[in-house]
Design a protein around this nucleic acid. Structure first.
Lengths: 111, 111
DNA sequence: TCCATATTTCCACGATAATGGAAATATGGA
DNA sequence: TCCATATTTCCATTATCGTGGAAATATGGA
């Protein structure tokens, strides 16, 4: 069941705070951000944030590595592209009407 | 806040039954399926399914149209490609490592 | 009009998730 | 060793979600 993973990723992202955390980490890039800075940026108490990071981490969407006293979190790009592929497979199935707008947007605005 | 919509779509799909409903409707294509057939296919009581269809429908992911005594549900391809684009925008941001595998897979296996 | 079919709405119960206070753990420096 | 900082774990409380029985609504046909 590889859809179990996708399910946990969808539900990890299906919450305002956690989506915001993930977006922030994507923006932050390879260097990532320490938990405390994320908490400050999003104005969430540290223990609450910790629980949310844990959910994102169990879903494989972020990764935390201790560095001195801080734990630096980074977004996992493989995980998000895997999730996107999962959704596309569900939907493309011979149907260009789903894929084409995605390809078009991807080519013009991102890659 | 266009992320409000994405959030509701993520949370609509973040549940086993509803993800299964959506996948089934994508497979069913433009003709869609009557609620009763979905309930039978997934072995869910009709009222439970109705609640789930309602959530998917409020998120804009499916649409129901009465046809005689049945209500025919269809997947909304625009909605799912919108959601995929939302996730890509979050993540691509100048980062080819997310986009490229998606483009590659899309070109080879789907569109 | 009356009945069967298809689906939904209403409602209540149990399960799961979100939140944050307080205490615990880990690290680095004096 | 002692202290400050960074983060987590534990725990309890509240909120939200999933589920399905029972009744209601809509449609089409006899």
């Amino acid at each position: 069941m590889e859809s179990k993973l996708a399910l946990s990723q969808l539900s990890a992202l299906a919450q305002e705070n956690r989506l915001a955390v993930f977006r922030l980490l994507v923006k932050a890039g390879r260097d990532g951000l320490p938990a405390g800075e994320i908490a400050t940026a999003l104005d969430v108490p540290p223990n609450t944030l910790s629980a949310q990071l844990n959910i994102l981490s169990n879903a494989g969407l972020v990764e935390g590595n201790r560095q001195g006293r801080s734990i630096i979190y980074t977004a996992n790009y493989d995980a998000i592209s895997g999730l996107i592929l999962f959704l596309m497979e569900d939907c493309c199935q011979g149907r260009a009407e789903v894929c084409s707008p995605i390809m078009a947007a991807a080519q013009s605005s991102c890659c």
